[in-house]
Amino acid sequence: MANHALVGTSGARAPRLGRPVGAGVPAVGGVVLLLPDGAPASGRGPSALARAACLPLARRLAREGRAEGLVAHVVRYRGRGWNGADALFAADAAWAASEVVRRYGDVPVCLVGHGMGGRAALRAAGHTAVNSVLALAPWLPEQDVAASPEPVKQLAGRHVMIVHGTNDARTDPESSYRLADRAKKVNRDTCRFEVHSDGHALREHRGEVLALAADFVLGALFSRPYARPVADALAAPPPLGLRMPLASGFGHALRR
């Protein structure tokens, strides 16, 4: 897809790939696109604060995947609102995946999103370049509307992980469980972790969440062996593999 402005209700500015994190690798072997959170509806420009919140994970992934040539980009949306049927973030995520192909060629892409970015990652998973999706505390308001369930067919053939804090007051953890349960029926490579006592930002267990994210992304993109809890979650039938607790200390002494 050409790098041009996408027209939408949030203005005429174009989505962009942010500056690469992990630049300087000898050859790009895989790309992570980080999709920030946002607002349900807004005509304002993209949020610098939401983008900044993605940078620690981007840096962690780029550092740990450097040997395989991993590059991370935080996607700059056209605006800061999902904006109903426009699904602005999902459209911009799909554009970003096409831009990766244009820029880097045929390399695997992992979409990593938080909140509304998590919903965008799940929605855009059908792009042919995408091999995996990590949705952190995804915003899924339509899960309670039987007439318009969130689609899951696009997740077939992808590696999918959802991570949600049990005390999330902004996005209902049960909505992501219901989506994961439906996704598991079309894609066996789906799992979900629950971060007990944590909220929407997943700050209380930040170290464990970053370690879990890195383990999943590097395993999905480069076929590294998953840590035992991740492998178990992917292999377990519902509900066990969809309510896997994230253990305190995960990442401090991983045994594969």
Rank of each mutant, 00 (worst) to 15 (best):
A125C: 04
H196D: 14
S197W: 13
S223C: 07
A90P: 00
A231M: 03
L57K: 03
L70Q: 03
A137T: 14
P138G: 10
G8T: 12
V25R: 01
L55G: 04
V101W: 09
P141G: 11
L35Q: 03
G84Y: 13
A180M: 11
P151D: 13
R119G: 15
V107C: 06
V74H: 04
P245M: 02
V186I: 09
A91S: 13
A220D: 01
H127M: 02
P229K: 05
R182F: 09
A94G: 13
A213V: 06
S132E: 04
G251P: 03
V7W: 09
A183M: 06
S148Q: 14
A67M: 04
G199P: 13
R206D: 06
A247Y: 06
A67C: 05
V145Y: 13
V133I: 02
R59W: 06
D86A: 15
E204W: 05
A135C: 07
L122D: 10
E208N: 05
G24C: 06
A50G: 08
A87V: 10
A48Y: 01
R78Q: 09
R103D: 05
G118W: 08
F216A: 01
P20H: 03
G24E: 04
V217P: 12
P56C: 01
V28T: 09
E64F: 04
D86R: 10
G22H: 05
A233R: 02
A39D: 14
A93G: 07
W82P: 14
A58E: 10
E64S: 12
A253P: 12
V21W: 00
V100Q: 02
R66Q: 14
V21M: 02
E208R: 02
K185S: 15
L210N: 03
F89D: 02
A235C: 09
V28E: 00
F250I: 03
A183S: 06
L55V: 15
V109K: 07
G43L: 15
S47M: 08
L6V: 15
P108M: 01
G38D: 05
G115I: 10
A156H: 04
G84K: 11
S197N: 10
L254D: 15
R66P: 11
A227L: 11
A156V: 01
E99G: 00
A48I: 05
F216K: 01
S148G: 05
S98Q: 12
A211Q: 00
L55C: 05
G18S: 09
G11C: 07
Y77P: 01
P20K: 00
V74T: 09
Y226M: 04
R256D: 13
